[in-house]
Design a protein around this nucleic acid. Structure first.
Lengths: 202, 202
DNA sequence: GCTGTTCTGCACCGATCGGTATCTAAGTCT
DNA sequence: AGACTTAGATACCGATCGGTGCAGAACAGC
């Protein structure tokens, strides 16, 4: 079989799909899944409903793709934090990234992974479940990282990676809620610092 | 002028308004403001749209009244916590109440004051603002209580009531998000305990 | 050129949204 | 009894919801 890598047949689309997805992500971030209508979304994306459906499937698929983009964009601080050399640095960077992303000027306040669909009616259930899985995934990565830290002696043998991961994720979620309510970056960084003051020593 | 306290004139309503409001609160709690349609609400309340409008005004007013009921019902742990004799006990009771209310069997998981309308489109802005004010109020009460504790020597003179209040509220908000994602009561109580381990000593 | 394929713009779909008009039933008042 | 007031049921309102059908425009390969 022969795989050809040519220009796609047919009329090329007249918009940048990446740019459109970025705009959609911002609308979901600010208004949540149910609060963002197709009219809001396509207006921000600068395309028609038909083009959106052709390029992204439907509203649920668009949300999923916006969430992926969020993970690799504004929420990339999480992956970077996990690569820090010590558990203490992981936790510190994770919370600092959470503070800075939820209070970034020019972006919606808060976290898409929290306020995108925290509670919803039937129509938003898919988005809600996607975000629960997203947060669970983040927590699992923290847990594995802390388990590794225990194995490597970076955390004391009695440390509980499961609980520590949930603790950090809980504080990050709380920071997101506070940011959505208008808390400032410095106020939240103080909170993050306080939350780490009892971090288990080596 | 003479004020008469008689039975109201006209046909008496055929439903218990308190009971109906309780049911509406549960729907808002589970589905959020925008996710709860009038059909969902009135079906759960067991009354018609017309009766709901006559008794409660409109959807926004119904939400506000449901939030009041939530404050005096499921969220009454907050007021009780503020009356504890020491700041340490206030913080401990506040977080324990938050854990137990957000994970109560038979009630929706999470906190109405968080997931009721964390992010929304234009139509949910009123509810969103009401919840921001609700959380701000709770935080202000904690701050005043902690300020009193500083004045009374219950907290060290260097303690920052503003920051401590925001810290406790942030952890409580995070607990609510975690509960909405299915975290169990014992898991969250561990998190609450961890969050208090660095509480400023006397 | 022509044909095939895909994108765009617009009108439109049925369903549901929050909210109401109308009529009748069920009470209190004089 | 009869006037008055309010609750309840039904049907309905215009607007908006997520999602499509259709005709024409813009590209590829031939």
């Amino acid at each position: 079989m022969e795989i050809t890598r040519r220009a796609p047949i047919g009329r090329p689309r007249g918009f940048d799909a990446d740019e459109a997805l970025e705009r959609a992500m911002l609308v979901f971030w600010e208004q949540g899944y149910e609060g963002a209508s197709l009219t809001d979304l396509t207006r921000a994306m600068g395309i028609t409903r038909k083009s959106m459906y052709a390029a992204f499937g439907n509203k649920e698929e668009l949300f999923r793709k916006a969430l992926e983009r969020y993970t690799e964009g504004p929420a990339a601080y999480a992956a970077r934090a996990l690569e820090k050399p010590s558990a203490q640095e992981v936790a510190t960077a994770f919370l600092a990234g959470s503070v800075s992303t939820t209070t970034r000027p020019g972006c919606p306040a808060g976290c898409l992974g929290v306020q995108g669909s925290l509670a919803s009616g039937e129509s938003g259930r898919v988005a809600q479940d996607a975000l629960i899985a997203w947060r669970d995934d983040g927590r699992a990565r923290l847990r594995h990282r802390f388990q590794r830290a225990v194995d490597e002696g970076d955390l004391p043998p009695g440390a509980d990676p499961e609980m520590l991961a949930r603790y950090i994720m809980t504080v990050a979620n709380g920071i997101a809620v506070q940011a959505a309510g208008g808390a400032t970056r410095s106020e939240l960084q103080q909170v993050a610092d306080a939350a780490l003051r009892n971090w288990p020593p080596v």
